[in-house]
């Protein structure tokens, strides 16, 4: 537990210094909102579902950006070897990375939601408890899938290209469920079936890295 916390704090400190992950994701999500704002330029003529779609698309791509860079700080000087050799083994290293990814994804998602709601000004869209819950669960899905695949492809040649292609199909279910749940919440529909689906998917992909972490980096 102490190892997880130490590693988590370390990544946050690096973020504060380099601003190469969370900040980048956030900037990307903002740009995306801006581009859609210009492209559609519709003061109130848009549907709630369209805003939900734009929001999740931006979130998805921003998340991918972060996932590709998740282990980027460690690769240059093989820091992962040093971390893994520390007492406590590799499991805390994986869990710390997952926590870092989740915090960045969640921050990006909540800020992007507020900005999208403010920019598009579609009646019905607002930042409610349910929407925040959906965002946190979606961020969890992105973080767990991302940690698994990013860790797995860490030592593969050309992983910067491979990873996005590989990650996308795994994240599509998260994006669909998130989009539907957000849309339903804004329309006043029933978001709960989608939220449950999201929870189940998150759970599967949180357990999977914990079962398979031994095989993530070696060779």
């Amino acid at each position: 537990m102490q190892k997880i916390w130490t590693l988590f704090v370390k990544d946050m400190r690096l973020e504060a210094r380099q601003k190469d992950m969370g900040f980048l994701m956030l900037a990307f999500a903002m740009m995306e909102t801006l581009v859609f704002g210009f492209a559609l330029d519709s003061g109130g003529r848009m549907q709630t579902d369209e805003v939900a779609g734009i929001l999740w698309m931006g979130f998805l791509f921003a998340g991918m950006l972060g996932i590709v860079r998740l282990f980027g700080r460690e690769t240059a000087e093989d820091v992962m070897v040093g971390m893994a050799m520390a007492p406590g083994g590799r499991l805390p290293v994986v869990m710390a990375k997952m926590a870092v990814a989740w915090v960045f994804c969640a921050a990006t998602a909540s800020i992007a939601t507020s900005v999208d709601v403010a920019v598009f000004q579609v009646p019905g869209t607002r930042v409610s408890v349910i929407v925040v819950l959906v965002m946190l669960l979606g961020a969890l899905g992105l973080a767990s899938v991302g940690t698994l695949l990013s860790g797995l492809s860490l030592n593969l040649s050309g992983h910067e290209v491979l990873l996005p292609v590989l990650t996308m199909p795994f994240l599509v279910p998260v994006a669909i469920a998130g989009m539907e749940a957000t849309g339903a919440a804004w329309r006043g529909g029933r978001p709960w079936p989608w939220i449950h689906a999201l929870m189940a998917y998150d759970l599967i992909f949180m357990v999977l890295p914990l079962l398979l972490y031994e095989f993530l980096w070696e060779v």
């Binding site: 690096l14 380099q18 700080r73 240059a76 093989d78 820091v79 040093g82 050799m85």
Partner: peptide, 11 residues
């Protein structure tokens, strides 16, 4: 372990 890389964060 002392490897070819320093195992430390450059930043």
């Amino acid at each position: 372990y002392l490897g070819h890389k320093s195992l430390m964060y450059p930043n």
